[in-house]
């Protein structure tokens, strides 16, 4: 088994300090977090963390269980890149004079799906979104024309197979939830479950 990129999706309560609680699960094990995003989720009041790490699946599994163990965490999932649709947003600041002179730049931007967010006399800001390679490619494209600033957001991801959290939350609110919520999901995925 090789290390690969995994996206961890965590549904949580909105609680001060939870970000730290989740972050130290990684830092304690000296695991680098490639990207971390917190945002609202499809359910009002429920937050959603999207964390990207490059690790072995076995390690990721253990991390996800440690995350789910936190009191304010409702549920944590991990997925490979094939199982999700994801995007990152990037902003690029370049000198307006520089690009106005060169028609070629405009074409390059269009080819890379970028759009202008702000155009001022002194500078122009472009925006694009996509996978890491795509946003990085535009950096290469713009560098010869004097890239003044570049910033990229964390990954946000949608799990292809997920039905969302509305129904699950209702179950969580029950004092005696159904088996689906408290089921030992990872057990079902065990490789070598003994069977009779």
């Amino acid at each position: 088994m090789l290390k690969q990129e995994y996206t961890i999706t965590v549904y949580t309560e909105n609680h001060i300090g939870l970000l730290n609680r989740i972050a130290i699960i990684f830092s304690r094990r000296k695991i680098n977090v490639d990207s971390l995003n917190t945002s609202p989720s499809e359910v009002e009041g429920i937050h959603r963390f999207t964390i990207v790490i490059n690790e072995f699946e076995d390690t990721v599994k253990k991390l996800v269980r440690q995350i789910e163990k936190q009191v304010e965490v409702l549920k944590a999932y991990y997925n490979t890149n094939e199982e999700i649709v994801w995007q990152e947003l990037a902003l690029y600041k370049v000198s307006t004079d520089e690009i106005a002179e060169k028609v070629k730049v405009e074409r390059l931007l269009r080819e890379n799906g970028a759009r202008a967010v702000v155009i001022r006399k002194d500078y122009t800001i472009f925006e694009t979104s996509g996978h890491r390679e795509e946003t990085e490619k535009l950096v290469e494209v713009l560098e010869p024309y004097g890239l003044i600033e570049f910033v990229r957001s964390a990954r946000v991801a949608i799990i292809k197979a997920s039905k969302g959290f509305h129904e699950k939350l209702k179950e969580f609110e029950e004092v005696e939830p159904g088996a689906e919520i408290v089921e030992n999901e990872f057990l079902d995925k065990q490789d070598e479950v003994f069977s009779m």
């Binding site: 949580t12 309560e13 009191v71 304010e72 965490v73 409702l74 939350l169 969580f172 609110e173 939830p177 088996a179 919520i181 408290v182 089921e183 030992n184």
Partner: peptide, 9 residues
């Protein structure tokens, strides 16, 4: 606590 499952089924 809705986000906390101390006793699994």
């Amino acid at each position: 606590i809705r986000s906390y499952r101390p006793k699994p089924i």
